[in-house]
Design a protein around this nucleic acid. Structure first.
Lengths: 331, 331
DNA sequence: CTGAAAGCGCTTACAG
DNA sequence: CTGAAAGCGCTTACAG
C-alpha cells in the first residue's frame, strides 16, 4: 500500500510534519510562502490525509451516522434522502450503517466515527441505550419515544393517527371495523392500535378480537391474511384500518381478488401516504406520515445536541388524514 | 467524554494494556484465567474499543463502502438492499456514504475507513480514479465501464438493452421512434442511445434529431417534455423509447393528459423494470435491469479483489426485454 | 504467558 | 513563523 503520509509531504516540501499539518488545515500562522510550498508538495504527491489518524485526536468528523437494519420498505429511501439533504445543509455528511451484527453497529456508534447518531429500526436494546448514555453519545431515535440528557427522539404520533383513521370510519357510519396489525412490540403498531381502540370506545363500539388481522406491515402477508379473513367471515367487517399503506394495498388487492369493490363493499384506510400510492388505484385514504419532516427534525435536533444547544427531548409529529377514494359512507 | 480506554481496563484487571489487547482480540496466548479477568474488567467498565485507534494500525475493517450522491430514484434502495445482504453473507458490513462534497467522499475512500469501495452515481472524476488506482484501493463501479489492477466494474449492458427495446418497436412496424434521453455523459444514457441508433440503422430508418426528447431520467421532466413534444408535432412519432421507466411513466402520463391512449395511439418502452411498475397502468413494456444481480455481483467481485483472488475486470450483465401492454403493433 | 516499547498518522501545546 | 515532542487508543514484534 505504501501510502503517502504527512511525513512524505514534509520531506518533499522541506519542512516539519507539524508545519505540513498546519498548512493543510489552514491554521493561520504559516507563512504564505511556506504554505504554498506545502500545498504544492502535497499535490505533487497526491497526498490524502488518513482519516483514522486525524480522528484519533478526537476531532469532530462532521459526519452523522444513520443506523438501521431494515432498508427495504418504502420509508427508507425517503427518510435517508431527507436526512442527507438536511445534514448537508448544516455541513454534515451522512454515513449509513447497515448491519445486522449488533457488535459492529455498537462499535461504530461508540467508536467515535461520527459526531452523532440517528437510529431507525435498529436493534438497540435498553442496555445498549445505557452504554450510549454513559458515553454521552448524541443520538436521536426515530422509531421509539425516549429522551435523556444526550438522547432525543422524533416520532410520528401514531396513537393520534390511529384515532383519526378510525374516527373517520366511524363517522362514515361503519361499526364493524377490522384492524390489520403490524408487528407486536413495534411502537407504531401499538400506538396505532391504541388510537383505534380509543376511537371505537368514543363511538361506543365494543372491541372484537376477531377483527384483528395479522398483516405484519407487509403487502404480501396482508394480502394473504385478508383473503383468509374474508373467506371465513365476509360480513363481519365493513371497514379496515390497515397498519400501514402497504398493508392497505395488500388488503385491497385481496378484496379485488375475491371480486369485492373498494370502497363500495369495503372501506380501507392506511397510514403513511407513501410515494407509490400515486400509482395505486383506488386512491387510498390514509394518514400522512410526515416522514421527510421527521428526518429533517431528527437532524436538526441531533445537531443542536452536538452543539450543546439543547438537551434531549421527545418530539411528536402529528399526522394528517387525507381522505381519498378508498373509504365510503356505509349505506 | 472521559471514554473508557484499554488503559482503564488494564488497571482494573491489574495487567498490562498489551495483555488486555490480546485477551480482547482472542490472540491465543493468554492464560485462560487472565483472559477471564480481563473480560470481566472490560465488562464491568463497559469498555468499547475505539475504532480509530484500532484501525490506525492498518487492520481490515470488514466494512465495504458504498458511495453515491443520488439516493432518490427507485434503484437506490433495491441496490443498497442487495449489496447489504450479499455483504453480510460474506461477513462484511456496509457503510453508505452520502455526500455531495467530493473532498469528504475522497477522504473516506482513501482514508482506510473501509476495506473496499462500491461506487454508484458518484462524482469520481478521472483524476480521482488515478488516485484510487495509485493507492491500490479496491473498488468496483456500477455505473461506468472500467477496469484495472484493483478496480472493476459491473454494468448493465445498456447498449444491448437500447437495441432490444428499439428493435422490439421496429418489429412491431414502427418507423418513427422518439428517444426520451437522460443526461448526457451518463453511461447508461449514452449506451442506450447507441443501441437505439443501431436498431434504427438495422431497420433502415434514418435518424431524426427532432425525435430526441430531453427527459433527464425523471418522471416530471419527461412529462413536461413529452407534452410539449406532442403538442408541437403529434404525428411525428408513433413510438417512444424512454431512457428509463420513470421517463416512460412521465411520457405516458403526458399522453393521457392530452387524451391519447397507450398503446393504441403511441407505444412506449422503458428500461429497468422498477418495482413500482406493479402499480402502474398500463403494464409497461421494459428491458429489465438486473439491479439486484448487479449489486450482488459487485460485492462478489469486490471481495475477491480484497482477498487478492482476482484482478479488476469489467463485467457486463444483460437485460431482459419484458413485453407487456404499453407497446402495440402499428396499424 | 506477560509486559515494556515502538509505532500507526495525525494534531497541538510549547519552546524557540 | 517553525519544529521537536508528546499523545490520541490501539496492536504487535520482541524480550523476558
Amino acid at each position: 500500500m505504501n501510502k503517502i503520509t504527512i511525513r512524505d509531504v514534509a520531506k518533499e516540501a522541506g519542512v516539519s510534519i507539524a508545519t505540513v499539518s498546519k498548512a493543510l488545515n489552514g491554521v493561520d500562522v504559516v507563512k504564505p510562502k511556506t504554505k504554498e510550498k506545502v500545498l504544492l508538495a502535497a499535490d505533487r504527491l497526491h497526498y490524502v490525509p488518513n482519516l483514522m489518524g486525524k480522528q484519533l485526536k478526537g476531532k469532530t468528523t462532521l459526519m452523522l451516522g444513520f443506523y438501521t437494519n431494515s432498508i427495504t420498505g418504502p420509508y427508507f429511501s425517503t427518510l435517508v434522502d431527507a436526512i442527507a439533504k438536511e445534514s448537508e445543509a448544516y455541513g454534515y455528511g451522512v454515513n449509513v450503517f447497515i448491519s445486522t451484527d449488533k457488535k459492529v453497529v455498537l462499535n461504530s456508534i461508540l467508536g467515535n466515527i461520527v459526531d452523532g447518531v440517528i437510529g431507525f429500526e435498529d436493534m438497540i436494546t435498553a442496555s445498549d441505550l445505557e452504554a450510549i448514555k454513559r458515553e454521552k453519545i448524541r443520538a436521536v431515535f426515530i422509531d421509539r419515544n425516549i429522551s435523556s440528557e444526550s438522547i432525543g427522539s422524533v416520532v410520528f404520533d401514531s396513537a393520534e393517527a390511529g384515532y383519526q383513521a378510525t374516527k373517520h370510519l366511524t363517522q362514515l357510519g361503519h361499526r364493524n371495523i377490522a384492524y390489520i396489525a403490524g408487528f407486536n412490540d413495534v411502537y407504531d403498531n401499538e400506538e396505532r392500535f391504541k388510537g383505534y381502540l380509543r376511537a371505537l370506545q368514543e363511538a361506543k363500539i365494543s372491541f372484537d378480537a376477531k377483527l384483528i388481522i395479522r398483516g405484519y406491515f407487509e403487502e404480501e402477508a396482508s394480502f394473504k391474511a385478508t383473503v383468509e379473513f374474508l373467506k371465513s367471515n365476509p360480513k363481519s367487517a365493513t371497514a379496515f384500518v390497515a397498519g400501514n399503506d402497504l398493508s392497505a394495498i395488500g388488503a385491497i388487492k385481496a378484496m379485488r381478488t375475491l371480486n369485492y369493490d373498494v370502497p363500495k363493499d369495503y372501506s380501507v384506510v392506511g397510514f403513511d401516504d407513501i410515494d407509490l400510492l400515486e400509482y395505486f388505484t383506488p386512491p387510498l385514504t390514509t394518514v400522512q406520515n410526515p416522514i421527510v419532516l421527521q428526518g429533517k427534525t431528527a437532524v436538526h435536533h441531533l445537531i443542536s445536541l452536538i452543539n450543546g444547544e439543547s438537551v434531549g427531548q421527545s418530539i411528536e409529529l402529528k399526522g394528517n388524514l387525507i381522505v381519498r377514494q378508498s373509504t365510503h359512507k356505509l349505506e
